[in-house]
Design a protein around this nucleic acid. Sequence first.
DNA 1: ACACGTCAGTAACACGTGTTAGGTAACTGT
DNA 2: ACAGTTACCTAACACGTGTTACTGACGTGT
Lengths: 366, 366
Amino acid sequence: MTAKDAPAARRRPTSRDVAAAAGVSRSAVSFAFNDPTRVSTATRERILAAARELEYTPPPSGRTLRNGRTQSLGVLLPHDIPKVMENPYYARFLMGLGQVCTREGMSLQLIPPVGDSLVKAVRHAAVDGFVVCGLDTDRGEIAELTRRALPYVLVDSGAPEGAPSVDIDDREGARDVAQHLLELGHRRIAVLSVEPRADRPAPTYRDPLVRRIAGIEDALTAVGLSRGDITVAEVPCTRMDGYRATQAIMAARPRPTALVVLADLMAFGAIDALHDLGLDVPGDVSVTGFDDLPEAQWTRPRLTTVRQPIVAKGRIAGDFLISAIRGEDQHQHQVLQTVLITRESSKPPAEPATPDGRYQPVPART
Amino acid sequence: MTAKDAPAARRRPTSRDVAAAAGVSRSAVSFAFNDPTRVSTATRERILAAARELEYTPPPSGRTLRNGRTQSLGVLLPHDIPKVMENPYYARFLMGLGQVCTREGMSLQLIPPVGDSLVKAVRHAAVDGFVVCGLDTDRGEIAELTRRALPYVLVDSGAPEGAPSVDIDDREGARDVAQHLLELGHRRIAVLSVEPRADRPAPTYRDPLVRRIAGIEDALTAVGLSRGDITVAEVPCTRMDGYRATQAIMAARPRPTALVVLADLMAFGAIDALHDLGLDVPGDVSVTGFDDLPEAQWTRPRLTTVRQPIVAKGRIAGDFLISAIRGEDQHQHQVLQTVLITRESSKPPAEPATPDGRYQPVPART
DNA sequence: ACACGTCAGTAACACGTGTTAGGTAACTGT
DNA sequence: ACAGTTACCTAACACGTGTTACTGACGTGT
């Protein structure tokens, strides 16, 4: 067998090869693929036949370089993909974003930090725009985004200037759920929050969590308490970390009667942990979540939580990004409302009432 | 304000601009960014300073065109993104794939069909390789994949020739769960399967589903029954379709005593439907799933199902793809085993026993 | 017969980078 | 002092396309 018979590593055919095979110019090939009106149907057929024969298909690299469009949206993620995919929150969010992709015929690129650096990730991503999820108050990445001169939309970053954004009213949502527990009579309350980014030199708290803590303080203030009267634990947002943190929290004496968890995923772990500790929910401990993932109504007991419209958040973020890419950008901002969903995981504490018939108040601080 | 003060639509700076600003050649700029050994540290600093000043960052389009690498893996999806993201199966699968991305510093591109055409999607995607999920026996897309001359790995397509692949032993898994129900004494069994792709001229059944049906037949044959003795319904793989299909199935008289659902997601919907119909699971109807999603142990009753190692499947597919991209391709194939997980949603039927003390057999066919 | 518009197709440019071969000055050893 | 090596940098090429301005041929109305 000669080299001609079986060209071992034949290079990929280019539009030039097709042009030669069809006896036309390279431009004609391009037109045949993209703008049928510019060539006669006869030669168009001939060109496409030649392309089929050579197994030619126009590679995206050239087109991308030429007209600057990739037909794909980037999602800048705060963690690596496995950690993100563990949280059903993101599945919901991507459903909303996916609706936009379907409508616009685009694909979706999941962009995790490379080696703990989102800046590098932003640099290398070949996309038409970014949806930025849960960016810190640290604005290093934003600087890189403006460098790239690509449109972007900030999600859960607190409606900053200079870019469109989508947020939810974290503060009110957290206030509602804390108020709910306080009205039920709970006073020994533990909060399970999401830890700050550990990979930063000066760890910065995530904006939504700051707002949620503030909302809880609002509710405490309204009944004459303050942040010092509750305990706050911070762990990574995984089910397992919620499980472990709850075990640690429940070792305290006196034990909290209510657990305010600021993410449903961790609340699921918390319920598991309480079950394994032999504690009844909500008999011994009330548990509340945040997000209202679909799974929240499949747990037993079903989870009292704060519903946020996650799918809508993704869809709106996508819509904002699309209009920014089209240059219709007017830096739109949207704040979505939350709703307290009261289910079975919260009820009044079973503590002995005080002499005056009210629940035991938190001990006065000196 | 003059145009010089506020250049309205200044074009993005290129490496040439940086070179001019730093008083060096364009090549030096490239080296400063990519290969520090090729330029003195002094000028490197000067170049980077100039780049920072001009807010220059090398765009990926040029690099991609030049060296043909995009640093991202493509996942070819059978449905649009919202439908895919609804199924926790894919979240698990992407967790496994994400592990590989983390290790290799790559991003992940979700590529849905554009206008019902995966071929177009394959054409436009700028990736280094494809993981192909649940491709039909129809091989139109594969032709386009070979055209693109990009590496790809087939998942759940039945170990074809010409490409690496990852599969599970669908047939044995389905046989196990069917045998489990038959041994419990069930004879009136309904199967809830996933519908064939409706968007095809000649609808083709998905390979894994064909294998699972075959496995059920294996179990039936072992007890002297055949496929005609069971009913099979096919609906899209969503929770809601599982719900509706179950309502329809349960309208039949005599009612089935067991429901073999070939995807956990649909089984969740089935359990909902049975609950809403006032039927007890497993008292009135046993239900089994397939996949063993984490959610399967949070339903009440907890779901008897066939566990498949979804995360591992994703990771192995990613590993195969990486080695194919590196040219170490030897068309590896892997078939992963399943395990029957017996939980609470299956138990013997509560039917009146026949005179000989055995459960009512299926009526003989004429 | 001639100016004119239309159609099919082409040459040339632009997109922005990475990298190879080569050239110049400084430096080193004898 | 001079040949040889080294350090640094540059010119030039290649990657593969989409699109604008243009050319030539052909038909058409007067």
